[in-house]
Design a protein around this nucleic acid. Structure first.
Length: 315
DNA sequence: CACATTTGACCAGA
DNA sequence: TCTGGTCAAATGTG
């Protein structure tokens, strides 16, 4: 974990310790879907916090170290975008040219391979266009899945460097991958490891904050069979148009109402297992005490899970 | 040679 | 008419 200072490392260890405990609880409550869903949401939130810690630490000391940095991690800071009018992936009425894409997710990604672009998200993309966007300092790049022609995969993404930080990119994913990139030896070699999968996990997160202070959407299931067939309209309220100042999973505790929406999960079930396994074993450091206050915080954090009695998790 | 990127033109919605 | 998204020819790369 090069680049993470002592304090950051402690924080990461603490967070991962909590993740580990949540995974244990998840294992114990596999027969309770609602509880599992809640636990999964907390796991993802904690994972993202950890990634954020790592990224904030590494970027602080980045500079010439980019070539030596470990495989990229994705910082999924919910984007309080400087010019949200240019970022409309969640609007119900995409006015632009019709697209077959139905799934969207938006993330803010740190540049990890240098200044060229954001981290590899585990998929193979081909750039098919670039446009200067009105009001934006940097052009927007348009990418489609490399397997579009061979496998009919319709997934696309848009990548745009943020105005205020040259090391951050806003990435908008459209559509879901229907390709199977793991069939060849070359593709298998390129197959992301657990760390990359974590990155993908983070990349599939969106945070949706309702301007009225109400949750705009609850966590939706990850599995493909639970995916709706159209973009969920309830998730496209003003949301990003007027983000609450601190709606982040970052270090600062945020009392604002935030919920996490999973969309366009890029990994198969086996990948998820691998991620969970990696999370469960990632730290050998003494785990911090797990207490009900922590869970209360998270259940209060997202009232969607307020019905769960933390006491049931900590008998 | 195959594949990826670049870039100007074109298209469609507001 | 303006703007963002896509197309496709030209060009680059290994």
């Amino acid at each position: 974990m090069e680049g993470v200072d002592g304090c950051g490392a402690q924080l990461v260890v603490a967070e991962l310790g909590r993740v580990k405990e949540l995974l244990r609880q998840l294992e114990l409550h596999l027969h309770e879907p609602e509880l599992c869903r809640g636990l999964a949401a907390q796991i993802v939130a904690l994972t993202d916090r950890s990634i954020g810690i790592v990224m904030s630490s590494s970027s602080a000391g980045a500079g010439a170290h980019f070539a030596d940095t470990p495989p990229a991690l994705t910082s999924c800071t919910p984007s309080p975008l400087s010019d949200v009018s240019d970022h409309q992936p969640f609007r119900t009425n995409p006015k632009k040219r019709k697209t077959t894409a139905r799934w969207t997710s938006q993330v803010r990604v740190s540049a990890a391979g240098g200044m060229e672009g954001p981290a590899d998200d585990g998929h193979s993309w081909r750039k098919y266009g670039q446009k200067d966007i009105l009001g934006a300092k940097h052009p927007r790049g348009y990418y489609r899945c490399t397997h579009r022609n061979t496998q009919g995969c319709t997934a696309t993404k848009q990548v745009q460097r943020t105005d205020d930080d040259a090391f951050l990119f806003d990435v908008v994913y459209h559509g879901e991958h229907t390709c199977r990139p793991g069939s060849t030896a070359a593709a298998a070699a390129k197959r992301p490891n657990a760390q990359t999968l974590l990155q993908s996990l983070s990349a599939t997160l969106t945070v949706n904050t309702d301007t009225n202070g109400l949750l705009a959407a609850a966590v939706t299931p990850l599995t493909p069979e639970h995916r709706p067939t159209a973009a969920p309209p309830q998730s496209v309220s003003p949301s990003l148009a007027s983000p609450v100042a601190s709606d982040s999973y970052g270090l600062a505790a945020s009392p604002c109402p935030v919920t996490t929406v999973y969309r366009d999960w890029h990994c198969c079930d086996g990948d998820l297992q691998e991620v969970v396994s990696a999370l469960a074993t990632v730290t050998s450091a003494p785990e911090p005490a797990m207490d009900a206050n922590f869970m209360n915080y998270y259940f209060d954090f997202d009232p969607a899970y307020g019905g769960i009695d933390p006491a049931s998790l900590f008998p």
